[in-house]
Design a protein around this nucleic acid. Sequence first.
RNA 1: CGGGGUGUAGCGCAGCCCGGUUAGCGCGCCUGCUUUGGGAGCAGGAGGUCGCGAGUUCGAAUCUCGCCACCCCGACCA
Length: 490
Amino acid sequence: MADAITPRSEDYSQWYHDVVRHARLADYSPVRGCMIVRPNGYALWENMQAGLDGMFKATGHRNAYFPIFIPQSFLAREAAHVEGFAKECAVVTHSRLKVGDDGTLDVDPESKLEENLIVRPTSETIVWDTYSKWIQSWRDLPILLNQWNNVVRWEMRTRLFLRTMEFLWQEGHTAHATRDEAMEETLRILDIYATFAEDWMAMPVIKGVKSAAERFAGADETFCIEALMQDGKALQSGTSHFLGQNFARAFNCQFQNRDNELEYVWATSWGVSTRLIGALVMVHSDDRGLVLPPKLAPTQAVIVPIYRSDEDRVAVLEAASVVESKLRASGIRVELDAREGFRPGWKFTEHEVQGVPVRLAIGPRDVANRTVELARRDGGEKQSVPVDGIVASVQEALDSVQFGLFEKALAHREANTTSVDSYDDLRGVLDDKGGFVRMHWDGTSETEARIKDETKATIRCIPLEGYEEDGVDPVSGRPSRGRVLYARAY
RNA sequence: CGGGGUGUAGCGCAGCCCGGUUAGCGCGCCUGCUUUGGGAGCAGGAGGUCGCGAGUUCGAAUCUCGCCACCCCGACCA
């Protein structure tokens, strides 16, 4: 742990990697492209799950579970969907191994499956096959389900949390009687994602619509939240899809409406993944390690006792555990780090690397003065606060860190969002400054593809707010209805 | 799949070009003592199929051939 974290200015992606490893969020696995989520990382995920799950439930959704294996033929049912996912599916072809005479292990050719199974890259197909059996009448609608699970997409290049072959996520799948209702649901979830990102993760996001090229395979419309990382690259942090009747048609899912007519069901699907952990790291952390927003931090406050003699030790631990009890009773996630054999300075650094928002140190001097030393992870000065008001002091510090992180990230995004009116300026800003670039777009895939090809930047989204403005696409010279957000992205 | 690189202790590396005692170093780990208000010091100790397989040689981590794995850069992507 003593080895240093590469500074952001030197090598941003190495820095990201160092922070993830030093904070013990994840490890590489023996299988290329997969990761082992360590307790620190998983605790973060559990807190994210808790926050999101509460919001899903509050809007009428229920959790369910669909199987990890999907018949290969299902994937082929929806044309755009198969096109989008066929190239990255893990396929199960056999059901057993055979131990040879020499002890070697091999696939038993006798066990070949009648039909291949694919490991789900997402579950639309199996969900809609199921919904087609559940839905007959308008009275069966809507269906509002979510599932927390893992999916596999056989990626070429991977990075811990940001892109792994297997990842954890939630996928919501809803079925509706009308187009409007499905669209309303799509946007409701988008709002939940944006609220979660901003209020819990302290990460400002732009809500928008994807261009046709960036749309989910099988969707009529993909909505997204886009965030800006510290290095000026964008990260798609959540998507909510209006699927129209595409999957209902593919799986023959019809219902009888109030007028006794058969209609295809309207669908949505939506998801956020452990990629959010990567976003959290890239938005807030610094050269000393992880920085976590208090609302998601597994440990919100850590107490480090400091002592020399045995008498001091007894008195300090006594005082520390009183503080611990008070904080815990008030609902703060607190940890008393009373481990022997680690010096205080070592503990300070360790908790700092792991992003604990507030650190309290208690030594003999504090015991004598009935005070505690309080230090904020986001860089504020250390201060001495009285034990008597410790709950209020810590709560205030936590609130202040949560707010401060959001404000800082927002200021960074504002400072790195640039409006341009020429292709040269777009290139210039992308190369020299990075960030989001607002520019007019004629709405064609040709223009978008040309820009992507020549600059590596993509249209991150057509923002839902502040988009409309008549103008001219500087690349094609054709008229434009508004400015879209260009950026290089993860 | 194309281009480049690396495989030696848990991690990071040296040694290889020019073959030759018992394969080293830093960090980490174990034991003991001293320490403890920002990653402690000293002493002792454990830990190795040198990626795998052939070959050359009296002798291979080192030379030759083959294979494998991983990393970086590109095309694909939540």
